[in-house]
Design a protein around this nucleic acid. Sequence first.
DNA 1: TATGAATGAGTGTTCATTCAT
DNA 2: TATGAATGAACACTCATTCAT
Lengths: 202, 202, 202, 202
Amino acid sequence: MARTIGSHGPRTMEAIRKAGLNLIYEHGFEAMSLRQLAAEVGIQVGSLYNHISTKQDLLYDLIRAHMDDLFRQFGEVMAGVAGQGPVERIKAFIAFHVTYHIVRKREVFIGASELRSLEPNHYEEIVALRRQYERHLIDILRQGEAAGLFHCGDASVAAYGILAMLTGVCNWFRPHGRLSKEQVIAIYSDLVLGGLMNAGHP
Amino acid sequence: MARTIGSHGPRTMEAIRKAGLNLIYEHGFEAMSLRQLAAEVGIQVGSLYNHISTKQDLLYDLIRAHMDDLFRQFGEVMAGVAGQGPVERIKAFIAFHVTYHIVRKREVFIGASELRSLEPNHYEEIVALRRQYERHLIDILRQGEAAGLFHCGDASVAAYGILAMLTGVCNWFRPHGRLSKEQVIAIYSDLVLGGLMNAGHP
Amino acid sequence: MARTIGSHGPRTMEAIRKAGLNLIYEHGFEAMSLRQLAAEVGIQVGSLYNHISTKQDLLYDLIRAHMDDLFRQFGEVMAGVAGQGPVERIKAFIAFHVTYHIVRKREVFIGASELRSLEPNHYEEIVALRRQYERHLIDILRQGEAAGLFHCGDASVAAYGILAMLTGVCNWFRPHGRLSKEQVIAIYSDLVLGGLMNAGHP
Amino acid sequence: MARTIGSHGPRTMEAIRKAGLNLIYEHGFEAMSLRQLAAEVGIQVGSLYNHISTKQDLLYDLIRAHMDDLFRQFGEVMAGVAGQGPVERIKAFIAFHVTYHIVRKREVFIGASELRSLEPNHYEEIVALRRQYERHLIDILRQGEAAGLFHCGDASVAAYGILAMLTGVCNWFRPHGRLSKEQVIAIYSDLVLGGLMNAGHP
DNA sequence: TATGAATGAGTGTTCATTCAT
DNA sequence: TATGAATGAACACTCATTCAT
């Protein structure tokens, strides 16, 4: 009755996270059963509980880890344009956001669509992190406005719109499709900068 | 939401659709149980089956009805700008899309996030309708490019971006909030037109 | 997929109570599974939930119903000796208590041994009822002491002892055994009255 | 209750027995999980199996050890009144039984209420020991009857009643409560002797 | 058309137990 | 002797769906 597969501790946990990410992305959190997950990992369903505390907690873990990665990578990218002007900074933001949303499309999708399955405490925590991230873009827009470079109408509304536009790539971008990631970044950079720098003053 | 004693056929069906819309919007299709739905309507769970054939079918009904409404209203709006130029037409598109996504935010949300719960036939059907709707925007962009007015980089990519931006309002717009619907439409119209008309030529 | 057995509403609930009583008596509440119970009743396990709300609740229902019966029957018996002296009243008490604990031995056993499986609210409620019942005996003892008939040492302690003695019959009495119920009542009546009327004054 | 680092063999086993006693007393054998037990001891659940063979076996061990203690202590006490009359011997019995049931209330409670969780072999063995213990009281009663001192009605029935009365103290006696152990013993001695010596001859 | 009782498969979770390390 | 990861069966409970009344 001992284990039949030689997977050990951390390796199993990693397999659970990976399979969980895929299954939640494909079927949704509610629709993914722990039996599916266990089967994907190659263990019995009860064995999952040697690694996770609840199904809920697995979701939180995945989303939280994604948010941490997002912030860490974002921090590194923005450090590279610290001290530069709003145009350079928003270009860096767009390039980063699109890249991350293409590379981590499953995490990003789950982090948006399965938020409602989090329990209140975790929900609030993640929403706060999202707001914090959005605020970085709003700040750039405000700086651009202050410098007389951008004309947003309303920095928050513009930021929400830009974020939605850029985030949308994870829904349609195909890695080896007609356009490269760089081309998409260029198109959206032009579109956004065009809009910000000339909005209402065409 | 309690039962109107003696409520018959169409009235009950309407109550089911209304309650279903709310519950799916709040909890998601997978997470909504027919027991919840029946309780909200004020009937027993078995009685639902006098009005719907399956839970799946209720979802399809709601989404299909929403798509039909979308196309009908869209048709009316665009008929009003038939023969006019790309600028007027995209302004009409933006105003319509934002308005519809504010007024019908629950239908719109469900129509996007619960698509994966549809069975393949219905899924394909709805996705085709969505593509058809997107194509209208792409066509406007193409006409604008052909007329030398717009510079999109890529009409499809620009359209996806614009749609995502506009659709996003249903996630954050609050009816009696800081900005009116008209203000939001104005801001996004400026942003989009600014982007399209000057992208890459600032 | 419709029902295979023609049992209807109240009949099914009665069957559940009866089978539950037997199974809990035999195996204990924790050890009884709803699968066993459903099998005994002849329905699927899920069907139990058309009649009970939780396993806990079934236990509470059984115990509460038993307590209600106990009080109702006790009330009738004691009404018959109202106004009589402590000796007649304690004889009536003994006869009633022994009889009830022989006839309803399973309810009585469950009502004592499975109390700890009740949730706090229900636990407190049942314990309060038990105290109320005990108090009737304590009152009889106190009246006997006041009349100079009984010498208890301590009415509460004597009452607990007498109750334990009488309650014990449900553990060893066999309906068609060596002694009849009436003989047991006579023996314990003599023992108790002898003890009360001569305790410490032999 | 956390682990004493480096605790070895017998010390760990002793901790398991102690924690097991408490947990079974509080929650019942079926309701106690080995995870709870291991946590209380401060080891991992798997480590329990270095000390016990099965959960069942732990229960048997605890009950058997309690019966052995009971018999050993009982033997010593009764040796002290060997050759004396039934009155002295029953007084010694009462004092011993009450004392043991106050001091070892958890063992006693488990030894009565969890018997049904023993497997048949062990169950029979323990029940036989209990009968053997009861027989000592029955013998005293018979000797008292033969000597014309006691009037029991039926020695077995009286013995069961007396045992139940005395055993009951473990349910309500509180160490520093209104009455001392000695007072309780005195009250029950009077009650029992009064009953035995005058039953049916008041 | 509404009800209530049924089905059978499914849910997340816990369990006692095993065993390589 | 202790650990941590595994097993497989079991648990209470919920689900969408059916259908005689």
